[in-house]
Simulated scan of single mutants.
Amino acid sequence: MRSWGFWLGLGFFALVMAGFAAGGVSLWHTMRDEGQLPVEQVEVKGEHPHTPAGDIRAVLTQKPLGSFFTVDVNEVQQRLEALPWIYQASVRKAWPRKLQIFLVEQQPVARWNDQALLNAQGQVFRAEPGPAEQSLPRLYGQDDNAKDTLDGYRGLATLLEGSGYPLAAAWLSARNSWELELKDGLKLVLGREDTLRRVQRFIDSFPYLKGEARQPAYLDLRYDTGFAVGWQEEENKETP
């Protein structure tokens, strides 16, 4: 009797395990079958004025998303963040068949080397500028030194604009030498050292040049005291 009971128990256990296995296989196929639990709704939030809805749709339809269980949210995030104006994308699943996306666009603060833009973190990104970006200051430098260029520009611009000299452009050379251009076209050559002190010297001294008949083209402030002035060449006036 014990022998029969043992074999009956073992057979029952085997049937139960087979049922679990069959159910597991069925569930696995259901989870992987896009037709069973497809992603039916994509919800996009966040302001993205530079990124048309069509561009987002094209990214999401590059290849099938898969089922709710198999969609790779990290891969979708990477595809969205490859769009030129997207700074950050967050992708989440929402039961039962929804994908929630939140987008953050780049916030440009300067044009960079006439070919790209800089965001507020000093990171270079390449995107087509719109009308609003045309009025941004122009910065020039090495890509691997973009943040230092932006930080230096901010300090110099604050000092100049606080005294009524708005800054239009700044150059930081590979040797860390600064050159500035004011919005009226006047250029300031600062060099590598004591840049803030040299700008302050310009602010203190420039009013004395305003009485000159000629207009200065640039001021070279790379001196311990004083500065050199380069004058605009007078245009030849033709006699009618």
Rank of each mutant, 00 (worst) to 15 (best):
189 V>Y: 08
187 K>M: 13
138 R>Q: 07
3 S>P: 02
154 R>T: 01
90 S>Q: 12
164 G>T: 01
3 S>L: 15
8 L>M: 07
147 K>D: 03
7 W>M: 13
165 Y>C: 05
10 L>T: 03
162 G>I: 08
124 V>A: 13
189 V>L: 13
213 A>P: 05
148 D>E: 11
131 P>M: 06
193 E>Q: 09
43 E>L: 14
235 E>I: 06
12 F>Y: 09
50 H>N: 09
24 G>Y: 09
214 R>G: 05
99 L>M: 12
11 G>E: 07
51 T>N: 14
85 W>M: 03
213 A>G: 06
47 E>G: 04
158 T>E: 14
97 R>H: 08
187 K>C: 09
194 D>M: 08
75 E>T: 00
184 D>C: 10
62 Q>G: 11
225 T>A: 12
39 V>E: 07
29 H>C: 07
105 E>D: 10
68 F>R: 03
234 E>H: 08
56 I>P: 12
229 V>L: 10
229 V>F: 15
64 P>T: 04
29 H>S: 07
122 G>P: 11
85 W>Y: 03
127 A>N: 08
69 F>E: 00
41 Q>D: 10
83 L>P: 01
233 E>K: 14
45 K>H: 11
139 L>K: 08
125 F>K: 08
136 L>R: 14
21 A>W: 11
131 P>S: 03
190 L>W: 08
186 L>F: 14
184 D>F: 14
182 L>R: 08
75 E>C: 00
96 P>N: 06
146 A>F: 13
66 G>V: 01
42 V>G: 05
161 E>M: 02
121 Q>H: 14
172 L>R: 05
95 W>T: 00
134 Q>I: 04
7 W>F: 15
174 A>S: 05
185 G>Q: 11
194 D>H: 14
140 Y>C: 00
164 G>L: 01
152 G>T: 01
103 L>V: 06
176 N>Y: 15
194 D>K: 15
85 W>P: 02
1 M>E: 11
17 M>N: 00
156 L>K: 07
184 D>I: 06
162 G>C: 11
51 T>M: 15
12 F>K: 06
141 G>I: 00
157 A>C: 05
53 A>Q: 13
96 P>A: 05
150 L>Q: 00
91 V>E: 15
21 A>P: 00
10 L>A: 10
210 K>Q: 08
163 S>Y: 14
64 P>Y: 10
210 K>T: 00
80 L>S: 08
228 A>W: 15
49 P>A: 13
222 R>I: 04
79 R>K: 12
154 R>V: 00
173 S>V: 00
52 P>E: 07
199 V>T: 04
30 T>A: 15
210 K>E: 03
21 A>D: 03
